[in-house]
């Protein structure tokens, strides 16, 4: 049998060693982690305008190409809830997960303006809401008229594979959003509705995922609230032009 003294010494040395190894590894790999995460988020933003990227499709792009598109073709803006542009911050630095915890009036919204080679502008909005098990989020691209959806991409933290997770895994789901409008015939804001039992109004409804009612409703709710947040900014833009 070992003495208590020995046991304590053994455990102390052991845990200190383990802590040292892990701490140095984390310091060493930390910058790479941050870089990977940034690229991952950038790809998610670009996925919303993937039909309008010039040249290589998004899945074949190298990290460097993604960075180039971001540096040359995307203008980052941060706006507040009353539609004013906040200077001196980049859209990337705004974390919607943290913004969601603030009171609604204080939130900041990231906005990416993508200009394609023909000079056409796309506004990429970031939205975030709740699915069935955890948070869901996505990017919605609007065309120059700020009313027509040019593309969408979604992601989630823990939706059920084969059901709710289809919002990300099944490319046919986000593709439905292309060409929908976020206003009704009277010009009032309606957002795009994910409709259970199949879309009836082709202008602003898409088919829900069967078996994933809660996630589908979550997407509807997220779209409705998320896109509405940007409306003051778009209204100001329209008045200017």
């Amino acid at each position: 049998m070992h003495s208590t003294n020995y046991i304590i010494r053994f455990v102390l040395i052991m845990t200190t060693l383990a802590a040292l190894i892990l701490a140095s590894l984390n310091t060493f790999l930390g910058p790479q982690h941050a870089k990977n995460e940034k690229i991952y988020n950038k790809r998610a933003v670009l996925a919303a305008v993937k039909d309008h990227l010039d040249g290589t499709p998004l899945t074949d792009m190298t990290d460097q190409q993604v960075e180039d598109v971001f540096a040359n073709k995307i203008q980052q803006e941060v706006i507040n809830m009353s539609g004013e542009v906040i200077e001196g911050v980049t859209a990337e630095s705004v974390d919607l997960a943290k913004e969601r915890k603030k009171p609604e009036a204080d939130r900041l919204l990231p906005l990416y303006v993508y200009t394609d080679s023909a000079g056409k502008k796309y506004y990429i909005l970031s939205i975030r809401g709740n699915g069935l098990w955890d948070e869901i989020w996505g990017s919605i691209a609007l065309e120059e008229d700020m009313k027509t959806v040019a593309g969408a991409s979604f992601d989630h933290k823990g939706e059920t594979p084969g059901l709710g997770a289809e919002i990300k895994d099944n490319p046919a789901f986000p593709e439905q959003f292309t060409g929908k409008t976020i206003i009704d015939e009277q010009g009032n804001y309606t957002s795009v509705v994910v409709k259970k039992g199949g879309a009836t109004n082709p202008a602003n409804e898409v088919d829900a995922i069967s078996g994933a009612t809660v996630t589908s409703n979550g997407v509807t709710e997220m779209l409705y609230r998320g896109i509405r947040y940007y409306q003051p900014y778009f209204n100001k833009l329209e008045q200017k032009s």
Binding site: F10, A18, L29
Partner: peptide, 30 residues
């Protein structure tokens, strides 16, 4: 390894290795 704390020692070894794997994977294939 002292017999009375052997499970804890084993867990420290496993946890350290798993964290190494996790950190490396995060850096190599995000």
């Amino acid at each position: 390894i002292p017999k009375s704390v052997r499970m804890i020692v084993q867990l420290v070894i496993i946890a350290t290795l798993v964290t190494i794997v996790e950190q490396v994977l995060k850096a190599v294939n995000f």
